[in-house]
Amino acid sequence: MSTVSGKAWRFGDEINSDLLAPGLYMKSSNEIMATHCLESVDPAFAKTVQADDIIVGGHNFGIGSAREQAALSLRILKVGAVLAESFARIFYRNALNFGVPCLFFPQYKEINAGDNLSVDAVAGKIQNLTSGKNYIVDPIPAHLMEMIVDGGLMPHLKKKLVKGKAA
């Protein structure tokens, strides 16, 4: 995992956990839940999002519940990265643990829905291929880099456990 390229989906401020993972479907499977992701703000999103598409949001993305489905749904929908002005803590942690890169992106307003973006979360590089603008942002924090490169907590733990057994 290094660079992902996809279409931008623009969302507003405080996209909360109830919008990402509505309570009514909390008892359902992760796959069913993912089909309802963000339906209250954009009913087309879960139906038409493509692998490696990029979510671009405003401030406090993911505020609310600890429900991991808020981040896991994005993983299941194969979202390539989330770029936002700021993130809510638990969402941010969950997303990185599922291997969904989240980057703080102050210039998020310069991205329009449908722009073609290229994101390198490890290097902290964002390219807007539509407008031709390039951005340098803070990469994934160093202590989490290995986990992100491994694809999330589960592949990371697996690798560590295998190493532990071999040692």
Binding site: S65, A66, R67, L72, I90, N94, N97, G152, L153, M154
Partner: peptide
């Protein structure tokens, strides 16, 4: 705590924070 309102435990003078199921 595996729930966002785990912050409530801090009323007892402890650090208590919420985390998702994966963490």
């Amino acid at each position: 705590g595996g729930d966002s309102h785990s912050t409530m435990g801090g009323a007892y003078g402890c650090y208590m924070a919420g985390f998702g199921g994966i963490e």
